[in-house]
Write a protein that binds this DNA or RNA. Structure first.
Lengths: 208, 208
DNA sequence: CCGCACGGAGAACAGTTGTTTACTGCATGG
DNA sequence: CCATGCAGTAAACAACTGTTCTCCGTGCGG
C-alpha cells in the first residue's frame, strides 16, 4: 500500500498543510471571516497567488480545517461512550480525555467553538454536519446499553445531542482556563463532571 | 426625572443608536472582528471620523451591543424561573418565551451566540460576565424552591449554569430554523423541552 | 527523452482600511 | 448675548486587500 505519492503531490500536500497550520495559528486571535488570504500566505512564506492552487477561498480553507479538527475524533468519542465502566468512572474518564485533548490541540478546539456560530455559512454547515454525526454515533452506542431499554430512538438522539453539546462546552471551558493555573482547570473539570452526572441521573429516571 | 436631555445629547444618543442598529445589521453575515469602522459609518450615512465621537473602536461598539442585547433580559430570565407552575408547564413556557424572543430579536441572539466564542477578547469577557450574572440570578431563584432543600450553593450554581447554557443553545437552534417552516421550529422546541425535562429529572434525583 | 501540466513567483489592478489633522456650525451655560 | 464645547465634515495618509495575468522551473507520463 503505497506511500507512493510522487515528489510532486507530496510537496503540494506539505504546502497545503502549511496553509492549514498557519491559518490555525492566525485564528487564535480572530475569526475566519476576518482572515485575509494574503495574511495566510505571508505567514506561510509564499506568494499570495499560491493560495489559489489549494483553496478557492478562505471559506474553503475553513471547511478543510473543520475536517482536520473533527474528522479524526469520531473513534475517540464513540469509544469513550462505549466503555463498560461504571457510570461515574466513565464520566471521569470522558472529562479527563477532553482536558487532555484540549491541552494537545487547543487551536483546533478554539476554531470549532468559534466558528460553530461564526460568520461563514459553509463552515457553520460543515461543523453542524460533523456534530450531527457525533450525536448519531453516540446514539448508536447508547442504544447498545441496557439502560436504554424502552427508549425511543428519538429520545436517545436527544440525549446524545445533549452529551455532545456538553462535551464541546466543556472543551471550550477548558480553553478559557488559564493554563498556568491548574486549580482553575480542576474547577472546570469538577463542574463538567457534575453536569454530566446530573444528566446521567436524569437519563436513569427518564422513563416512567 | 427629566426627559430633559437637551437637543444636543438627544441627537448624540440617536446617532449612537444608529451605529448600534447598523452594526447589528451588518453582523448578520460576518463576525465582529471583521467589521470595519468605515463599513459601519457608511451604513449609518455619516463621516468615518464621526465614529470616534461615540466609540474608541469596533470592539467598544461590540461591548455596547452586548449590553443592549443582554442587559434588559435579566428580569425576564429570573422571572421565568421563579413562576410557581408545575415543572413541565414551566419548561413549556420557558421554551415558548425563548422562541418568541428569538423571533423578535434575532440579530441580538445571533450576535451573542457568535461572539460568545468570537475573536474579540473584550466582547467575550462582557458576554461571559452577563452569562455569569444570569447563572447567579437563576441560582438565587432555584434556592427559593422546595426542591432545592439539601443542595449546596455550589451544586445549585452548577445546575443554574446548565440551564442558562441550555437556554442560549436553544435560542441559537431557533435561529438556525427556517422561519418559513414552522414544523422545523416545532422540532427544535420539542427537543429543547425534552432536554430541559431530562435535566429537571436529574435535578429531582440528584441527592441520595 | 521530450513536452506538457502544474506549483509557485512577481507585478500590477482598483478598492478598501484605520487614523490624523484642520475645519465648520450650532446648542448650551454663564 | 456671546464665547466655548462638541457633534459631525472633509481631505489626505500609507498600508492593506482579493484577483488577474504573465511568467518560470521542473516532476512526470507518454
Amino acid at each position: 500500500m503505497s506511500h507512493s505519492l510522487g515528489v510532486r503531490q507530496a510537496q503540494k500536500q506539505k504546502t497545503r498543510q502549511a496553509f492549514l497550520d498557519a491559518a490555525l495559528g492566525l485564528l487564535a486571535e480572530q475569526s475566519l471571516s476576518s482572515l485575509g488570504l494574503r495574511e495566510v500566505t505571508r505567514a506561510v512564506g509564499v506568494a499570495p497567488t499560491a493560495f489559489y492552487r489549494h483553496f478557492h477561498s478562505t471559506a474553503d480553507l475553513g471547511v478543510a480545517l473543520v475536517e482536520e479538527a473533527l474528522g479524526s475524533l469520531h473513534p475517540m468519542i464513540s469509544g469513550t461512550v462505549s466503555t463498560a465502566d461504571d457510570s461515574d468512572q466513565r464520566i471521569d474518564r470522558a472529562v479527563a480525555l477532553i482536558a487532555r485533548h484540549v491541552r494537545e490541540h487547543p487551536a483546533h478546539i478554539r476554531f470549532i467553538a468559534r466558528e460553530r456560530n461564526g460568520g461563514v455559512q459553509k463552515v457553520r454547515a460543515a461543523i453542524a454536519e460533523q456534530m450531527d454525526r457525533f450525536a448519531d454515533e453516540v446514539r448508536a452506542e447508547l442504544a447498545k446499553q441496557a439502560e436504554s431499554d424502552g427508549w425511543s430512538d428519538d429520545d436517545l438522539l436527544m440525549l446524545a445531542g445533549l452529551y455532545v453539546d456538553q462535551m464541546l462546552m466543556t472543551a471550550s471551558a477548558f480553553l478559557e482556563a488559564d493554563p498556568d493555573d491548574p486549580a482553575e482547570e480542576d474547577r472546570v473539570a469538577r463542574v463538567a463532571r457534575r453536569r454530566m452526572r446530573l444528566i446521567s441521573i436524569g437519563r436513569r429516571h427518564w422513563l416512567g
